[in-house]
Structure formats: structure tokens, C-alpha cells
């Protein structure tokens, strides 16, 4: 009862105070207005994620049993994971039911975000980050980060070679020295002795 009143209150005042809020969506995530999106792709992703979480729920539940549900004084290491994975399984089932209902009523895909995801961009960024992380321990922070930045600036963002060079140097060698010399925070050095001795 009281809650309803409060809602009414916010309705009355809210309109007046934030005129520049275009879409006061109720969602916490970046949830722009619904627009007919790529609903087949959405469905496929949704199904995949639902299946994945359901499998995770079963696997963790089984693992938790091995950890032991109870010990001398109450819950053991497996107690929380066990009940949480059951809760997770049930929630995934509820989600599946909801999305099936949504399909039947023809509203599927409505909730998808409006930005068309640029998949080549997503893959390039992720792969380049993985390569960077993998190389950091081998080539050292400076060389790996320099290559990474130069790739993103000169090749992907099509900046001129000198702009790219300057920023890439600042972001690799510059950042390295700010951290090691001023803050005594060490970033990884190269594994190779000969690079190491010249400070890379």
C-alpha cells in the first residue's frame, strides 16, 4: 500500500524534474528503446546462454556435493554452491518459460539492445587483447603494448603513422616508466635477457 503511494508520488514529480531524460527505462542496464532487432540471432544467443547456464548449474551442483554440504558446525564448503546452483537451474527454467511465452505472443527480440553489434569489431578487439595479454609476459609490457596500440591506431582507426607512433610510444614506454619510476609498480619485462638489459 505504502509502496504504491510512493510510486504515485514519483510519477507526479518525476516528469517535472528530469525533462531531458529521453527514455527513463526501468532497467538498470543500458536499455535503449525497443526496436525490432535481429530476433533470430537474439533467440539463438538466448538459447545458447540458457543451455550454458543450465549445464553450469548441474555441474556445480554435482561438484558441491563432493565438497561436502555440512561440517561439524553448520554449512560446509559445498552448502552455498549447492543451493545456489539449484536456484540458478530453476531461474534458467523460469527464463526459458518466459521467453517461450514471449515468442508465442510475438514479442521476442523486443528487448534486444538497439545498437547493431559490429561483430568483426568485437572479434578484433577481443582477439587483439588476448594476443596482448599472452605476449605481455614474453615480450614485456612495452613491446607488446606498443604493437597492440599501433595496430589499433594506425591500422584500425586509420590515424597517420606519426600520430599512431607517438601515442603508441607514450602508452607503452611512457606508461611503463610512470609506473616503475614514479610509483615503483612493476609492469612485466621481457623474458629475453637481451631485451631485458636494454630496459624492455
Amino acid at each position: 500500500m505504502r509502496r504504491l503511494q510512493a510510486d504515485g508520488f514519483s510519477m507526479a514529480k518525476g516528469t517535472r524534474v528530469l525533462p531531458d531524460s529521453p527514455h527513463p527505462a526501468t532497467d538498470i542496464v543500458d536499455a535503449p528503446p525497443s526496436r525490432p532487432a535481429d530476433s533470430a540471432g537474439y533467440r539463438r544467443l538466448e538459447l545458447g546462454v540458457q543451455a550454458f547456464f543450465f549445464i553450469v548449474a548441474i555441474v556445480t551442483a554435482l561438484n558441491s556435493l563432493d565438497l561436502g554440504l555440512m561440517v561439524a558446525f553448520g554449512p560446509g564448503p559445498g552448502f552455498f554452491p549447492f543451493y545456489l546452483s539449484i536456484a540458478m537451474g530453476l531461474l534458467v527454467l523460469a527464463w526459458i518459460v518466459q521467453s517461450r511465452r514471449a515468442i508465442r505472443s510475438g514479442a521476442a527480440g523486443d528487448t534486444a539492445i538497439d545498437e547493431a553489434i559490429d561483430y568483426p569489431h568485437v572479434v578484433t578487439v577481443i582477439v587483439s587483447l588476448i594476443v596482448l595479454a599472452a605476449l605481455m609476459g614474453v615480450l614485456g609490457y612495452q613491446i607488446a603494448m606498443f604493437l597492440f596500440l599501433y595496430f589499433h591506431l594506425a591500422i584500425r582507426a586509420k590515424r597517420t603513422w606519426y600520430t599512431s607512433l607517438i601515442i603508441a610510444l607514450a602508452g607503452s614506454v611512457g606508461v611503463f616508466h610512470v609506473f616503475t619510476d614514479l610509483l615503483s609498480v612493476t609492469l612485466p619485462l621481457s623474458m629475453f635477457g637481451f631485451l631485458n638489459t636494454i630496459g624492455l
Binding site: 596500440l149 591506431l153 582507426a157 609506473f179 609492469l187 612485466p188
Partner: peptide, 20 residues
Amino acid sequence: IPHGILLAIIMIFLVVGSYT
């Protein structure tokens, strides 16, 4: 800052921030 450069800077933040 132009978009492409800002993107590169943010990625430095992400990597160094999680490494440290």
C-alpha cells in the same frame, strides 16, 4: 579526444588496470 585514440587509451586502462 578523437574516437579511435580514446578507444586505444581506454584499452590501456583496461589492461594495465587489471594487470596491476
